[in-house]
């Protein structure tokens, strides 16, 4: 069975077509084929798989949302490149896993001045479920975000690849200040000393975006409104994304109970809400230039 949530559904106007397609569908349908419900019902499983192609995901019912261009905060998206996103959820004792799927013919995983990465993010309220602004929350009702990026997936799968010689194999350089070893001075090995790190300003400043090592390609963040996005000191989420046949399949797994107060609590038989954002790096999507969908109810068994 597949559920479809439209933009109109969020304001109480359920499209007749969606309603007509809802209910009575077989479990064999693929995401995007229709459906009328607007809630994601997480299914219990023994262990939430991080592999987006694990068969266990077939037990969860995908919900498809019609993505909208972000048009409130600068910079805005003028044209939707990713029209639909499918989401389904599995839970085990310790983890909530959400499988996100969308079509994107161009796999964008490089970061250069003119190259942007594909990505997806989920957002959950940390305060009042009904009063939280889905657009980055507010001081009274902040939000939790988990953000996966294709470029970070490359970091995890193949080692940190945004190095000068990865993009420019013939690039020669003399030794950098305080660098260790020899040419080509790979960033993960040659810049270990504090003095060498001083010449990597973002790294020296402790910017999470500049991390040289990344265990999982996902970042946990918190926001209390536009421009307040902040990295969690404790990073507990896991993720894995695979691009296959013109489609991204990304699993983001959140711990259900952690010491970090800035994480959502996800107890049994609870109702949560989750919003989505998708970036098409090949289309120059970055920052607020994204497709998004506001809160969808997420029921945990």
């Amino acid at each position: 069975m597949t559920h479809t949530v439209t933009r109109a559904a969020t304001v109480g106007l359920i499209l007749a077509t969606a309603a007509a397609l809802g209910g009575g569908c077989s479990g064999k349908k693929e995401p995007g084929e229709g459906g009328g419900a607007k809630e994601i019902d997480a299914k219990s499983t023994k262990t939430v798989p991080l592999d987006p192609f694990d068969k266990a995901w077939n037990d969860a019912i995908p919900v498809v949302v019609d993505l909208m261009p972000q048009g409130v905060a600068f910079p805005m998206l003028q044209e939707v490149k990713i029209p639909k996103l499918s989401a389904r959820a599995l839970v085990d004792k310790d983890w909530l896993g959400i499988l996100l799927e969308w079509e994107d013919k161009t796999k964008s995983e490089r970061l250069q001045v003119d190259e942007f990465t594909d990505g997806v993010a989920i957002e959950l309220p940390l305060g009042d479920l009904d009063k939280t602004n889905p657009m980055m929350g507010s001081a009274e009702n902040p939000v939790y975000l988990a953000h996966w990026k294709a470029a970070w997936q490359v970091d995890v799968d193949r080692g940190r690849r945004t190095d000068v010689q990865d993009y420019h194999p013939g690039f020669w350089s003399d030794p950098y200040p305080f660098v260790a070893g020899g040419y080509p001075y790979p960033v993960q090995e040659a810049f270990e000393s504090p003095n060498a790190r001083r010449y990597l300003p973002g790294v020296a400043a402790g910017n999470p975006v500049s991390k040289l090592y990344r265990e999982y390609p996902v970042e946990e963040l918190q926001a209390e409104g536009f421009s307040t996005l902040a990295d969690h000191q404790m990073q507990n989420a896991k993720a894995k994304g695979v691009h296959k046949d013109g489609k991204w399949r990304v699993v983001i797994a959140l711990p259900r109970a952690v010491a970090d107060a800035a994480n959502p609590k996800l107890p049994e038989k609870s109702t949560q809400k989750v919003a989505f954002a998708v970036w098409d790096g090949g289309a120059g999507n970055v920052a607020g230039r994204k497709q998004w969908y506001p809160f969808v109810t997420l029921n945990l068994p």
Binding site: V187, P201, G202, V203, V286
Partner: peptide
């Protein structure tokens, strides 16, 4: 705090903001 969006690189008319491909900001 910079997250490497490159909006500044785009908006600076003098092109005096640079993207660092290693630090990604």
């Amino acid at each position: 705090r910079c997250r490497g969006y490159r909006e500044c690189v785009k908006a600076c008319p003098y092109k005096k903001v640079y993207y660092n491909m290693v630090t990604r900001v």
